[in-house]
Design a protein around this nucleic acid. Structure first.
Lengths: 336, 336
DNA sequence: GAAAAGTATGGTATCGATACCACGCAAGCG
DNA sequence: CGCTTGCGTGGTATCGATACCATACTTTTC
């Protein structure tokens, strides 16, 4: 570290280049408006002095921060990480920077974080959630900036939403199983409050049954248990209750892995006697030899699309669609 | 969206509360310096107007942005994601915000991103890498701010470094295998250029052999192959070359998974005839039934420690240690 | 009881860039 | 040739907060 706080300013560059500082500003921000030889002089001075523009000051005077705030519930889940990656790449290609916050699924923390992010006067906000407290929603609506919600597709987004339909995914998986001859599919989930995604997948399952008996097993939440634990326990309960079960539609891959392990322990033939399907396409599948039939979501595509929307909105382009459904892929592998 | 750009300013709050705006600033930033009843008046006005302070302006005048720039090579790898999580949580608890950029392992992009981040005049920079171009290194040294490098432990950090010793990890794993009776351990890696981490693990392996013959299999890089592919191929080559091989120390878990699958295909007894170890403790292990012996790195702890250092440094506290070694855990499971 | 120290508050300059307006100069037009 | 038009450039005000200094008033100290 050299001595702190001694940044070269635009004025220094201007003096070195023998031009006015506004010309330096233009040379760097809108080179087309500056003649080629002044441009060269400015760049030479910039390189010589090692100048790095202070975007903070620029943001204040131009009222455009070139920063986008993003709020994720957690980075633990790989899909969110890939979403952030797609977002970051798209934004940085468009000259925007990413300010990241996380909520850890706590609504009150979300409200605080939104406020904190707004303090930076971002050009847009990206939220990987659509569940907001009324207070947060009001804050967002009054902020007067593009707000892009990810993953869920609400009926009435604040500004725009990018994601896929959990209901359709649940429906399609159920139809796939029925279409391949299953007669008694069970829907297996954990009964977490406010888990809208699971609710929607369940609704999709119900809607696709077409006369078959709905069999929904909703396990009580328990912080001591992991996803696979629930899956194992869930399969055991399902078989106890409905011995003729021939398919288990798990609300997540983690549950499906646990159910599969339990099936192996019991020596059940998968997929002959029992089909097991998951949701999310986490990586266990390819790497460790468990080829799970599941629904794959392209998190990176969602991030990239969010970046595209953000760039368009900050460029003042009109919004073509408020709701963008990127869909999903039913990946049929060995378990059903 | 209401009409854009109409933020309430500190002056508005001051007028509503009947005080000077500097008092509002103090009430929000250093409440202890304001009398209780003015404090109450200010807070009332803030709530009534829905005021959110403009940190951009604050940063400009105070020369402290309360932002920390972080540069990661990729968010794909879960360890990095947990590091960022630890960092974000630590920073936000200390009132700092996280500006995120990624390099995708491209040195030239790193230089550009560092420059871009410096444009926000962050109070500190966190880099999940220690390999910098000379140009980047100069930029960082001249920036006059705390730079914290993660994962590697360089001999001469720019400011401070948090991580663990790859060499010691390679050494300990080798000793563990020799100590449990293995006579012919092979070190399996991919010969990527500039992969300092792999080099150091290999050096640790060499140093721990104590008379045993060094057997290093370094596969040529190939973009078409995944980690497990390399692992499978590597085990095959190792056995062809040294039929008495009784242990394979893989440079990463991905390789180890591939090697394990190949061993299963050949019907080899693991760990009876052959031990297989990995590095990194990715999640395959617990979830999918493959209990891999490996080295576990606590990414979140590294992130938290980086946050702690950052907060201390921005608070002006002197630096106790330039190099912080958080170590690793040798996790002994079923494969060796 | 007067001087010294401390507390609460406000005024003004300032951080570093950009917006807006104005100006000089060259080319295009009748 | 005088006028308009457009380009390149510079001066000055401004964005919204905080630093620094000053002021009015209260409390402590010998």
């Amino acid at each position: 570290m050299s001595d702190p706080r001694k940044w070269v300013t635009m004025g220094d560059v201007a003096r070195a280049a023998g031009v006015g500082k506004i010309t330096v500003s233009r040379a760097l921000r809108t080179p087309a408006k500056v003649s080629p030889d002044t441009l060269a002089k400015v760049h030479k001075a910039v390189d010589a002095l090692g100048y790095v523009r202070d975007e903070t000051a620029g943001a204040l005077s131009s009222q455009r921060s070139r920063v986008v705030g993003a709020l994720v519930s957690t980075l633990d889940r790989p899909v969110f990480a890939t979403t952030i990656r797609g977002l970051e790449e798209g934004l940085s290609a468009g000259g925007l920077q990413l300010l990241l916050g996380s909520t850890r699924y706590a609504p009150d923390k979300e409200a605080r974080m939104v406020s904190t992010l707004l303090g930076r006067r971002p050009d847009a906000l990206v939220l990987t959630s659509t569940d907001h407290t009324p207070q947060t929603r009001r804050l967002l609506e009054n902020a007067g900036l593009p707000v892009i919600e990810l993953w869920e597709l609400p009926d009435d987004p604040i500004f725009a939403a990018v994601g896929f339909s959990n209901r359709a995914a649940g429906r399609d998986m159920t139809r796939h199983l029925i279409g391949s001859g299953r007669k008694h599919p069970v829907f297996l989930r954990v009964a977490n409050a406010n888990d809208t995604r699971a609710d929607l997948r369940e609704a999709g399952y119900r809607g696709a049954l077409e006369g078959f008996e709905p069999r929904i097993l909703s396990l009580p939440p328990d912080d001591a248990l992991s996803g696979p634990d629930f899956g194992a326990q869930g399969l055991a309960q399902a078989l106890a209750r409905w011995p003729d079960t021939d398919a288990v539609i798990c609300v997540s891959d983690a549950l499906a892995v646990g159910a599969w392990c339990e099936a192996m322990r019991r020596g059940l033939d998968v997929p002959g006697l029992l089909a097991i399907t998951g949701f999310g396409d986490i990586d266990v599948a390819g790497d460790a030899g468990l080829a799970l039939t599941t629904i794959r979501i392209d998190g990176e595509a969602i991030g990239r699309e969010a970046a595209r929307l953000t760039l368009a909105a900050t460029a003042g382009e009109p919004l073509a669609d408020r709701i963008i459904d990127l869909g999903y892929t039913l990946v049929r592998r060995a378990t059903g």
